[in-house]
Design a protein around this nucleic acid. Structure first.
Length: 422
RNA sequence: GGGGGGGUUCCCGAGCGGUCAAAGGGAACAGACUGUAAAUCUGUCGGCGUACGCCUUCGGAGGUUCGAAUCCUCCCCCCCCCA
């Protein structure tokens, strides 16, 4: 099975792109995938209405699967979200209501559809992806029935040796959380039974859960299935992906504007560029290798390419180009500033005394408090139309309006335009 | 059920009657330096106010005191040991 020109196989591409950490049986999986289409899945948390950058890796894992002629399934844990994965977490996850989860599922489905050709229900093409809610089989499962059918296949002794559990022995974990791996293994079992699914991809922290699923499939379905893990992605500075001052970087344009999304990628650490190009874009290896040759300040070009590609994948070509133009306007001169975050204001607001700069900064959300705004001014971090503001009492008046807008700048990177009408 | 140790500002972690908006570190933000990078140095880092200041915060609710994160009572939660 090979429909990709650049790579002989899915596994080869996953390796080249840095998605390959560990595989339960690489040779067997490779052979299986070479003989025909295979169904594989990855899981997503429906803890919010939108996915964020952290989900991009499993998403891309599914994208590559589909591009290699296999069928991807995105399983969204509508059932398991009510439990919570113990690994890495110090606290019990807050529980979501069914209504919350259903709303989140709808949002996530729309986002996944941007990446994967989805076609649920009858009439789906054989390789079209599916999004499945494990609540379908988990919510109505009776406890006794579940224990008898599934529970008997699990050894507590073995469960206790899993890292996800071991790491919690000090701080403690609830029985509820302890069950997470069983529920997850059950997902694999059901996907195998109902969809012939034979592969699970997940983060390396999911290795234990994946192995549990494989064992369960073997015992109950007598099916040989496989697992493949990707490394947990951290930035060069050891941070989790997608954390910024403003919080998580979301895929939803309403939560993180395409411009801010674009900027996130432009601002990644030099050391991360190569890795990210491989993981988060679909650029051909030759193109990526060219970009990887760039040195010093030229690395910025690679970052722009990265930002442009990822933003295109998530928000579309037009939004990506507009973000690029806006970034050029903000940082280089030239370019079209339209995509820079802005807010609308009436000309009358600027008449006479005008507006307090401090108040405006807080009102448009550039700062969290007026105290922060004042501090910023004191430290010389605020500019109006390019000129540093020295006076905390600064007011924005009619004279500050240039070509229908007032350009605000915080620090070196944050920009906001006040659009003034009439 | 018994005994012991804990819950502090975004995180870790000091404080243990006033000098505490609370040490120190990390994160974050700003400035310098740069390449919209990193590293480094400097500054800032609860809210409101130009400011002497005022308000809110140390698991929760009461109480003692001129005054509490610090003492007392009850409650909730976590960890360890014993049963």
């Amino acid at each position: 099975m090979n429909v990709r020109p650049d790579f002989p196989s899915y596994i080869a591409e996953m390796k080249w792109r840095g998605f390959f950490e560990q595989c339960t049986d690489e040779a067997a999986l490779g052979e299986l995938m070479a003989t025909g289409p295979l169904t594989g899945y990855a899981g997503f948390d429906p803890t919010a209405e939108s996915l964020h950058i952290g989900s991009l890796v499993p998403i891309m894992g599914l994208v590559h699967l589909q591009r290699h002629g296999h069928r991807p399934i995105a399983i969204v844990g509508g059932g398991t979200a009510m439990v919570g994965d113990p690994s890495g977490k110090t606290e019990l996850r807050q529980m979501l209501t069914v209504a919350d989860i259903d709303r989140n599922l709808a949002g996530i489905r729309a986002q996944l559809a941007r990446f994967i050709r989805l076609a649920d229900g009858p009439g789906a093409g054989p390789l079209d992806g599916l999004m499945i809610d494990n609540g379908d089989w988990l919510r109505d499962k009776g406890y006794i029935e579940f224990l008898r059918d599934i529970g008997r296949h699990f050894s507590v002794n073995q469960m206790l040796t899993r890292d996800s559990v071991k790491s919690r022995m000090e701080t403690g974990l609830s029985f509820l959380e302890f069950n997470y791996m069983i529920l997850q293994a059950y997902d694999f079992l059901m996907l195998n039974r109902d969809y012939g699914c034979r592969l699970q991809v997940g983060g390396s922290d999911q290795w234990g859960n994946i192995c549990s699923g494989i064992d369960l499939c073997r015992r109950v379905n007598r099916a040989e299935v496989y697992g493949l893990t990707y490394p947990l992605i951290q930035t060069a500075t050891g941070e989790k992906m997608g954390k910024t001052a403003a919080g998580a970087v979301w895929l939803d344009a309403g939560r993180t504007s395409p411009y801010d999304f674009f900027q996130y990628w432009v601002n990644v650490d030099d050391r991360d560029v190569s890795r990210f190009l491989r993981m988060y874009t679909l650029l051909a290896p030759a193109a990526i290798e060219e970009l990887e040759k760039l040195q010093g300040a030229d690395i910025r070009q690679a970052k722009q390419a990265l930002a442009l590609e990822v933003t295109t994948l998530v928000h579309g070509e037009a939004a990506a180009q507009a973000s690029l133009a806006a970034a050029q306007a903000a940082f280089g001169g030239g370019g079209d500033a339209a995509a820079i975050p802005s807010s609308a204001h009436a000309a009358s607001e600027f008449a006479g005394e005008g507006l307090s700069l401090i108040d405006v900064l807080a009102a448009v959300g550039l700062v969290d408090s007026k105290g922060e705004a004042r501090r910023l001014v004191r430290q010389g971090g605020v500019k109006v139309n390019g000129d540093a503001v020295a006076d905390e009492q600064r007011r924005l008046v009619a004279a500050d309006i240039r070509d229908g807008r007032v350009v605000l700048q915080l620090g070196k990177k944050r920009h906001h335009h006040l659009r003034v009408d009439g």
